[in-house]
Nucleic acid binder design. Structure first.
Lengths: 196, 196, 196, 196
DNA sequence: CATGAATGAGAGTTCATTCAT
DNA sequence: GATGAATGAACTCTCATTCAT
């Protein structure tokens, strides 16, 4: 596959992403993507076999970019509380951004593919690694005297479940920025930080 | 609609429920339901127009039954902590019961219908009313000296978000009974109750 | 399936037969048959799943009718030589009737399905039963003094292979009535009958 | 067309032959051949226009090689009966060799192209020339006193039809070596040769 | 010569929906 | 009310054929 094909592949994935953002995962057809990309019916099949494969590739790209963003916020020289706050604010922005999010599609995809061997369940890997990072962050904060927390691991897990809860609520019953802020404040209060 | 029709209507909804449990919402076709019910294709249309309508009716029945169950656990004469614990245990059982749950279907349905006028978003109504009940429960507990909590409303919301987070995770990345227990313990610890 | 459906089923098979006569087996598509029948795309699938199934059903009908024809020629009160001659003349007519014959389609079908369990290879059953009937006929002829033949079974098989040879040649390199007559004469000469 | 092209052409035809052996004629696509040859899609079109043309060329090569083989068996210095026997044994081997034979493909091809101007129907030419050779062989045998036969031409035609019958049966209903041997014995018996 | 990306026609199949009975 | 045959739109997937490089 030449340089050109790689570009086209990328183009298809970027365009397909928009389709998934708009329609979720289950409702998307190869035809939807063909039309969004404005390519020929057969053309798409030169690159991908079905919507599942396309979605997985979209997720791969997505994760890579997420990793980049993540390292950005970490490389700053700041306190644990600052870093945690930045992380939570990022999550807030993400989950309030209803119309440019793969969230629904991802949930729909994993509704069907939840049983995947653990190594292949990208969602689980992300969840677990986020828990570990947050846990480490809390430990550092505790050492620095920023936080008070007897069970950093439990707290980290709790934070992630709250975030997941906010995310799914944002997609189903709606969530306001204030509601998210309240949850963030609640998290910090549990860590012994009154003012955010 | 005669007596007979009402029975048939009920029969269709009960059968359709099983289909939604099995396949979620988006993938279910009228044909799926016709076949599950073993009625004629045209027959289904005498009762319902499309899968969306059927699903809404299924949800109505579901909610009625939930309300019944809910009142059960409340009418007992117990402490606030007991009631809260019973409620959380019920939620635990529900969310671990992967194969007899409308959860996926409900999420898929509200992914599409989130924008509904608030009055019609059953999920939101349920969420809000659960928050209020929990809040009241916490207030009672605080009055009784069972709990310590400065912000019962915030705490109630937080509990619901954790539950939603557990629910969605149960459907996508998998959740163990232990993980749920840890979250329940965490909730109680935040209320000043160490042992559950 | 009601009375009406049975008629339509029959209609489809009769029409499909014409298509198979015209195009053989492998080239025939569901679309070909839909168009020949002038029914809707989905309509055909109410009755049959694929061209293979349709062809098998066509063959069933065909065989039933053949059986009828066959008994006709037997029920006459004639000599063995007469009966054999009638049979061979029928075969002659059949194999020269290039444009109303399933022969090509049958061969193409069994090219693909030769490996079928013996019970399901209709062609083989027909071949074997024809051999047995001819064998019996020759034995009767020998008893009557009409034929001279030391190995009726071998002769019967030989006759069938000659007929098969004529049939396939008729479909590939062409065969004239005279050529068939010559073979018929040759068969009778081997049975000790000079004039036919 | 340069030396190199001639080699490639030959390579394509040899590879295509295998495809035809495997799938017959009608089902073979240009894509099948491209993939078997592991050349580019456009590349194939530089040499051939469609599967029909390729098949004709494959047949040409085939016939040349057959001629060679044929002359082999003839150049031996043997009796007519010997030569005939060798020929029939060769045919036997050929027709029992189900998995390396173009037979099906050839039949399928001529089902469609039977109407070709006689000069171009290679199959017919081969059939007629085989008849002539066998006829001549029988005449020689008769002169030598090896055979008894009043109608060498009729007998030769009969032999060829039997062979064609065996060939098509081998491809459709299955034929055992014993069955072929019986037919060969039957042929010789008709020529007055009891033991083969 | 050779490549392989691209196109678009066409086959298979499924379903929502209608309607005569 | 109830049936289920019928229709046609929509989707998936494959291939012959072309063409810029």
């Amino acid at each position: 596959m030449g340089e050109k094909s790689i570009q086209k592949r990328k183009y298809i994935l970027d365009t397909a992403r928009k389709v998934f953002v708009e329609k979720g995962f289950k409702k998307v057809t190869m035809k939807d993507i063909v039309e969004a990309c404005d390519i020929s019916r057969g053309g798409l099949y030169l690159y991908f076999e079905n919507t599942s494969q396309i979605f997985q590739e979209v997720l791969k790209l997505e994760t890579q970019q997420d990793d980049d963003l993540f390292s950005d916020s970490i490389k700053e020289d700041s306190t644990a509380a600052d870093i945690l706050l930045v992380f939570l604010k990022e999550q807030k922005n993400e989950l309030l951004r209803k119309n440019d999010t793969l969230t629904q599609a991802i949930y729909e995809y994993y509704f069907e593919n939840q049983a995947l061997p653990k190594k292949e369940n990208r969602l689980k890997k992300q969840f677990d690694s986020a828990v570990m990072i947050i846990e480490r962050l809390i430990e550092i904060g505790v050492e620095n005297g920023e936080f008070y927390c007897e069970d950093p691991a439990g707290c980290a897990r709790n934070i992630m479940f709250v975030l997941e809860g906010l995310k799914i609520c944002a997609q189903t019953i709606g969530v306001t920025p204030e509601m998210v802020d309240q949850e963030i404040a609640y998290i910090f209060k549990n860590l012994g930080v009154e003012e955010v």
